[in-house]
Design a binder for these strands. Sequence first.
DNA 1: AAGTTCAGTGAACGTGCGTACACTCAAAGT
DNA 2: ACTTTGAGTGTACGCACGTTCACTGAACTT
Lengths: 242, 242
Amino acid sequence: MCGTTNTRVHSKVRDTLSSMTESAQAASRQEQKGRTRQAILAAALELAQRQGFAQISLRQVARHAGIVPTAFYRHFDSMDELGLALVEQSFSTLRRMIREAQRDPKVFDNIIDAAADVLVEAVKQSKAHFAFVARERVGGSEAVRRAIRHELDLFVSELAVVLARLPNIENWATEDVQMVSRLFVRNMVSNAEEVVEMPDGRPDLEERIKDGARRQMRLIVVGFRDWYPAEARSSPLDPDAR
Amino acid sequence: MCGTTNTRVHSKVRDTLSSMTESAQAASRQEQKGRTRQAILAAALELAQRQGFAQISLRQVARHAGIVPTAFYRHFDSMDELGLALVEQSFSTLRRMIREAQRDPKVFDNIIDAAADVLVEAVKQSKAHFAFVARERVGGSEAVRRAIRHELDLFVSELAVVLARLPNIENWATEDVQMVSRLFVRNMVSNAEEVVEMPDGRPDLEERIKDGARRQMRLIVVGFRDWYPAEARSSPLDPDAR
DNA sequence: AAGTTCAGTGAACGTGCGTACACTCAAAGT
DNA sequence: ACTTTGAGTGTACGCACGTTCACTGAACTT
């Protein structure tokens, strides 16, 4: 009665992903499993963008990923676990970008513009992940919220280390560096929110947001410079603060 | 078969609210209706604090308000309308507080500390409303999100008017005042988020947050002062900036 | 005193949900 | 060649949901 041909029926995300790997057909078991897992993650991410992760259902995700609801459990124990996986994925993307940017010598010349560039570029490239983090940071389930908060705290500390290495900052009090870092990250989150909420076909606004982010970072830095009035005049932090 | 004694059965919020008005029993029809409406709003607000407004159901709200699901429709056409009513309520509270604070002569001496005081006091007094706004600003339904965004924009403009009247700011460019105002409001939202996410029995953290808010506002102001370097030295904005 | 209004009731409906269960059938292991 | 494994299937369940409908009875209007 049942017993359909199984593998590769109607599917949205899964087919797309499969066709991306040109030499596709050699589907070793775990490769295929990984692919379906990615399909689930992608489906959840896309659906979450419209309605928020907390209000999408397991069945919706499964439908969008091209699998039957019960198959979901082969990959995640619950929607909460899916959410945590998405948090992890989002931050690993973000961290990779920061690490790459760190190699760029431009950072030493002009942190602010570099940071603004990285921010806008990163958000543009993986908008969905940023949207996810921005939204679920306050709107998600307890577990997801906690995970994001933790990751953001880690990120603040990492950025503080980077900042502390810059000339003219190395003699700041650690807690002040930490505070600047926290403000930068907060600023990043705010601007990510703005990009996310941005009407779809208006890339002109992007430049405005980027400019705003730059000005705000400069503001933070100028404010802080006043706390270290003596030597911090020609810091790389504000090469041309108007 | 049915025909129970109606009015005043088991109820959570409704009984509480009723007993608040000492001379209660004279329940004129519209008074009673208003009371139930408030009960619904209060129930929704409380439930939204735990799980987020978007994931609570009409039936949950009705249950918590002590009415039957269908009675809900006597007051709101849908959950979305309830959400909009909550937005309105939240901002009217906020606006009242700002208006009161504006009469306080302290504002002229020291805006920053005054603002920090108002912020913390306001958040403490109506935590639930702030929590609602902070959460639903990004996590809510399309309609609710838009409404909050609009109210916040209005609020930024209002605050800008207040700021523009202060000595030494009156000659700033309007758009700069607007930007300071926007940063202040953004700061307010961020701190509200923090208070909201604060573990319940830790009022000691409150003071830390308040202090952080103060420092951040000072930062904004000090940064801006550098853009108007000539005369703005002893502005009320930063009477004692360390 | 008789009639109208309407906030709140309770039963009933269709729908989508999470999850349990027994299943298939190709890849992986022997 | 054979078993074993396990990703994906299809059915079936109980439950909470939003919404409909005809209703009751106290507060009001006349």
